[in-house]
């Protein structure tokens, strides 16, 4: 099986003598045409800008998911910050003097001035201290209310004299102490008096 038989050698010799059909011209023309077609083709995989294959769609979907995840993360972070940040308490904050329209040294009266809250307490960590600027409080419509203008006919404005400084009630020290304890209880009620001890009772 591993050797060629004599008749196979005869067959091989006969086939080598086999006359070749005269098809050279047609074969060369065909070769020329195919080679020209190969040369005319710019690239084997031409770039098609408006055609996205399956891989491209998967890539786009992946990028969209990534963007969505990043947006969700940032959104959740900001909402968490909002929940942690305490609501501004106007009563406990120091008033911020509001400059009048004519930028003179006039201060609004305590009754008429709008109390602006201080910036809310930020949840301080090392990252936010370094990277983030303190956030401004959410703009409320109350803060946007216009301050009533000071009448122009005021003598202080007319003479351009410095007006006497008026302090807010928060700066004014309380005049009297707030009573402590429960009303109706006098110091005599706290006096310790000797009473009969039950252990020394006579039988």
């Amino acid at each position: 099986m591993n050797n060629t038989t004599p008749y196979e050698k005869l067959i091989a010799a006969k086939l080598e003598e086999m006359p070749v059909p005269d098809m050279a011209d047609s074969i060369w023309a065909s070769i020329d045409m195919q080679l020209d077609a190969v040369v005319d083709t710019p690239k084997e995989n031409p770039v098609q800008p408006f055609k996205i294959n399956v891989k491209g769609w998967f890539t786009i979907a992946g990028v969209a998911l990534l963007i969505g995840a990043i947006w969700w993360y940032i959104h959740s972070q900001s909402s968490a910050d909002k929940t942690v940040t305490p609501a501004p308490v106007p009563e406990k904050t120091a008033p911020v003097p509001v400059a009048p329209a004519d930028s003179s040294s006039l201060y609004p009266t305590p009754g008429n001035g709008t109390v602006l809250p201080l910036p809310p307490l930020m949840k301080k960590d090392s990252i936010s201290v370094i990277d983030k600027l303190p956030q401004q409080p959410p703009v409320d419509s109350i803060h946007l209310q216009p301050i009533p203008a000071i009448p122009v006919d005021s003598p202080a404005v007319k003479d351009n004299r410095p007006q006497e400084r008026v302090f807010d009630s928060i700066y004014v020290l309380p005049t009297h102490k707030k009573p402590r304890g429960v009303k109706g209880i006098t110091p005599n009620d706290y006096r310790i008096s000797v009473q009969k001890d039950s252990t020394h009772k006579q039988p």
């Binding site: 070749v20 074969i27 070769i31 080679l35």
Partner: peptide
């Protein structure tokens, strides 16, 4: 051509084989 003739089923297939082989050779 004689080589392709031995393997092909007919003359036309031999011509196709030879054409493809020469194109591959040139490329």
């Amino acid at each position: 051509m004689a080589i392709a003739m031995r393997y092909a089923a007919d003359t036309h297939e031999a011509a196709d084989i030879l054409t493809q082989a020469f194109v591959k050779m040139f490329r």
